[in-house]
Design a protein around this nucleic acid. Structure first.
Lengths: 205, 205
DNA sequence: AAAGAAGATGAGCATATCCTCAGATTTGTC
DNA sequence: GACAAATCTGAGGATATGCTCATCTTCTTT
């Protein structure tokens, strides 16, 4: 069971030439775009291959199945996300809560503008379970950030506050995607108020 | 297009005998249970029929496809939800924000304990879109509640606060389902703090 | 108890998606 | 330019799921 799922997530072939690396990149990009358009479930690897300008056989040489493609995207996004969090964690202690919330939103909104498939991929369920690796990685980043802001928090508490904060941030996406430009501005303001109020009450000054 | 989607959501045959009504009820119950277990996408109507003790042909006499089954469940849940909100809306004006939040949680947690498939059904996407009927119905209930609490709010504002509140409430489910009993208690406390802080700041005293 | 209406059955056709594989093509190396 | 390794191709086999329909059973009505 664990072995087979390990294998199913592994790359089948690692690209050894430039051509291969470009193919893999094109496939991942096409997959992300298609997932955003039609959703993960409805996205077929045949269509992904076509959009990437590759044959279906080529795709299957690099990825054994759809979940492996999703996993590769998650890893890529996770790396990119980590790169954007790290400086924020270092600054957290110096920032007031309102400023911290501003920065959180800037990072999240910037990231989602660039990688709109991110949240969809996080929410994908395999056997009705979400990917624990990607989840834990994010939670740890958030937890670090809140402990930097307030060292008095226990690890468990920091982790819980991190979870709640991230869930709330994430929940904005649902409304965001179906709003007009004006409504989006108001929505962000509303969510900033919600998070600021919560974190003020929780990490209180 | 709109006609075909209307037809696809319609019941194929309405039960006219007790036996039929019981069959439909059994099918819906089996569908809800299966969806909770394996998720909407992975749930097949063949399996639903088997669990309901019916043949696949019987199921298809009442429902033309899976989406129609989901829609029937949504309608059923929507009715039940409305029945639980209505008394709360009437009381809202008299309650303080902390009490209001307590009641919101009581209603939601009670409902989800009884109908765990509810949120999954709300989040289902058809053609990558969610069901606007079920969404609007809930939003309007929430908006009414906040206007009862504070008549000064514009309809748009009340609707926005309602949306944000519901999204935040909903986001708790993700963490809830994967927590132990102890962690759940702490989680609810955390979310109550978050919502209370937000609504206090928004509807201010 | 007869007849029509409602309900039930499940083998099997239609369709769709996953994924393989034998062979062709391109690239790198000497 | 010759050879090997890497890459690419896409028809089609395997499998899964959606859904139909001819036929049978049960219920209701008179």
């Amino acid at each position: 069971m664990s072995i087979s799922s390990d294998l199913s997530n592994a790359r089948r072939r690692l690209p050894r030439q430039d051509r291969g690396a470009r193919r893999v990149a094109a496939i991942l990009q096409a997959a992300a775009a298609l997932i955003v358009e039609v959703g993960y479930e409805a996205a077929t690897l045949t269509e992904v291959a076509a959009r990437a300008g590759a044959s279906i056989g080529t795709l299957y040489q690099y990825f054994p199945n759809k979940e492996a493609v999703a996993q590769a995207l998650r890893v890529q996004y996770g790396d990119e996300m980590a790169a954007r969090w790290t400086p924020l964690v270092a600054e957290a202690a110096r920032l007031g809560i309102a400023d911290l919330v501003e920065r959180l939103f800037a990072v999240m909104l910037g990231f989602l503008a660039e990688f709109p498939a991110y949240l969809q991929l996080l929410d994908i369920t395999v056997d009705n379970r979400r990917d624990p690796v990607a989840r834990n990685r994010l939670r740890e980043h958030f937890a670090l950030l809140f402990r930097a802001k307030q060292p008095g928090l226990s690890l468990k508490e920091a982790s819980r506050v991190a979870n709640v904060t991230f869930q709330i941030l994430k929940s904005m996406n649902r409304l965001w995607t179906q709003s007009s430009a004006d409504e989006r501005r108001a929505l962000v303001k509303e969510y900033k108020l919600a998070l600021t109020s919560y974190l003020n009450a929780r990490l209180g000054n």
